[in-house]
Design a protein around this nucleic acid. Structure first.
Lengths: 155, 155
DNA sequence: GTGGATAGACAAGTGACTTGTCCATCTCGG
DNA sequence: CCGAGATGGACAAGTCACTTGTCTATCCAC
């Protein structure tokens, strides 16, 4: 379908990149569901990583993910509902509610990260580790100017 | 941000692929807007290509894009509003409304395709044409089992 | 011809956002 | 020490791209 539909090698490349992303994410999602993390979406996992990396308030998370603080607050509400983060008042600033990744949240990060690594390993086995590393290096160069974040990770 | 946030080379790879896709699409969108195709989104262009490639009814377009016929009908309504497609009754089947890409629609496809090709050329100039072709070949192999479609092209 | 599949329209609901508004709290210059 | 402006978070309403569900009109095969 890609060939006849795209009719442009540039458009095909774009679809290949998106297809690669979804291919990885779909595999990881299926495995996560089997391991008791049903309903979790990539955006949740990446948001969780951002929280763990220091985005411990809704406003800060919004900045990191390039969305409004309201959108970040909704994502946090979902993560809190799933038990992946909890919120406690900041003793030093009564406006803030500090976010913390729960043990279950850390487990999701560990399992999810391992699953992504598994998919990557399988890819490396198919095209060769050196080839995959080269591919990554090139992609990194091609996207380096994008201050990329997890926006548009909707599915 | 990718490094510290991902904490997993597999997850990083996924973000690189998505970042590459968005990088291409964003550039093309900016140029399309400058050329009088404001408001058009990638999903519209890919849907248009699908219509041109033979998905000439809402139901068929839905199948090709792996969305419901209702969703396809909405996309068509947008495309029709922009003047990229028109609909006429099918003389051989009174249930169908046959879709046709208008001249303006063909122009969008041409211009959009050329813009995607431009981005691809610029990438080729940076990493080498052979390297880019190798990257594409590998991506094609890695995603070949996915009966890929334009779903999740939302942004 | 009649029963089942199919095309499309209409309605309502969802998820992930947005903008806009509001208040509580913090920070800093004077 | 105090008032102005910045910041964090909550609430409300609207948007966008879907979904499920239902309905009618039409087609096709037996």
């Amino acid at each position: 379908m890609i060939g006849p539909m795209a009719q442009s090698s540039g458009a095909e490349l774009a679809l290949l990149l998106l297809g690669g992303f979804h291919s990885m994410v779909d595999e990881v999602n299926v495995e996560l569901a089997k391991r008791g993390h049903e309903g979790v979406r990539p955006v949740h996992e990446f948001a969780l990583r951002a929280v763990d990396a220091g985005a411990d308030t809704a406003s800060e998370l919004g900045r990191r993910l390039s969305v409004t603080k309201q959108a970040a607050a909704q994502t946090i509400a979902v993560l809190e509902g799933f038990g992946y983060v909890d919120r406690e008042p900041d003793p030093g600033d009564a406006r803030r509610k500090r976010l913390r990744v729960t043990p279950r949240g850390h487990e999701l990060m560990t399992v999810g990260g391992a699953l992504f690594d598994d998919v990557r390993s399988r890819w490396a086995a198919r095209i060769g580790d050196e080839q995959l590393k080269t591919l990554e290096t090139h992609l990194a160069r091609l996207t380096e100017r994008r201050s990329f974040s997890a926006e548009d990770l909707r599915d």
